[in-house]
């Protein structure tokens, strides 16, 4: 009996060890380039490890049973007539419940840190008329800390391109330029069908919906050029609907900005 428990514990620890090792050493994610990314990767790691433990554990249990309890040639008759075991069943109801609950709370915390739980900023800087309704999105700015320093950009999507309007410079660009380490605040709206703004390296995605402006805030942390991918089926050229986001040092950004800036037109 002791022997049996010993092997059980050994196997469980092995499963844990392997899962943790894989979780910490196998990187399945692209580069981290925004403040969201490390938070996301932390969540990913935890989910990955828990998932691996459950998956490896279940797989071992199934394969072990197939080997250990396979019918040998000389055997006849049935297995033991075991119809259930209430305490065991209670255990495997409660343990997953706890795991799921903890995962839920944890991911809530992660989401909050990403800014997802903030009520949307209704007097957002770009909203000229206060009546306009912002539907949802990810906002890192709450109502009272109005983002004066944020870089505000208006994104419009159409079949099959993104356009980035820099209201302060009064120009439109097909490429998104942003300075590093500065919060960017985008208001997005589609001109035709639903699109989605996705930057894999930033771990953010938000649908761009016709008739329902959405908000997306993020802070890039690494200089470089990253793809912007449309992630919602929007027609034949959906796969080709891409753009680039260029994260650059503040000075480079300013240079680019001033080069493109158009004088305010007063009507």
């Amino acid at each position: 009996m002791l022997n049996k428990n010993f092997y059980l514990i050994l196997i469980i620890s092995l499963v844990f060890a392997i899962s943790f090792w894989i979780g910490f050493n196998v990187n399945l994610l692209p580069a981290e380039a925004s403040i969201n990314a490390p938070i996301y990767d932390e969540l990913f790691k935890i989910l990955f490890i828990i998932g691996l433990i459950i998956f490896i554990g279940m797989t071992i249990a199934v394969i072990y049973s197939l080997f250990k309890f396979r019918k040998r040639n000389d055997q006849i008759g049935d297995g033991i007539a075991l119809e259930g075991n209430l305490s065991l069943e209670i255990v495997w109801t409660i343990i997953p419940s706890i795991i799921v609950l903890l995962i839920g709370l944890y991911s809530y915390n992660i989401y909050d840190r990403m800014g997802g739980m903030k009520e949307l900023n209704h007097n957002h800087e770009m909203m000229s008329s206060n009546t306009e309704k912002i539907w949802a999105g990810i906002s890192q700015t709450s109502d009272n800390e109005i983002a004066i320093n944020n870089l505000s950009i208006e994104v419009s999507a159409m079949q099959f391109a993104f356009l980035f309007n820099y209201p302060k410079g009064n120009f439109i660009s097909g490429e998104l330029h942003v300075p590093v380490d500065q919060k960017v605040s985008m208001k997005m709206e589609s001109k035709d069908v639903i699109h989605a703004f996705w930057v894999p390296e930033f771990r953010i995605k938000q649908d761009i919906i016709p008739g329902q402006p959405t908000i997306l805030n993020f802070t890039p942390t690494k200089v470089g050029k990253y793809p912007i991918v449309c992630a919602e089926l929007c027609g034949p050229y959906h796969g080709g609907m891409r753009a680039s986001i260029i994260v650059e040092e503040e000075s480079d950004y300013n240079e680019w900005f001033n080069k493109n800036k158009k004088p305010e037109v007063n009507l």
Partner: peptide
């Protein structure tokens, strides 16, 4: 038995997808 193994895997990725912050990156 193949079903059990495959489904557990798919179910676990499902539980991951159910977490909003996780899903935001991998949705669609």
């Amino acid at each position: 038995c193949g079903f059990i193994i495959n489904f557990v895997f798919g179910g676990i990725t499902g539980v991951a997808l159910a977490q909003v912050p996780f899903d935001i990156h991998v949705h669609d």
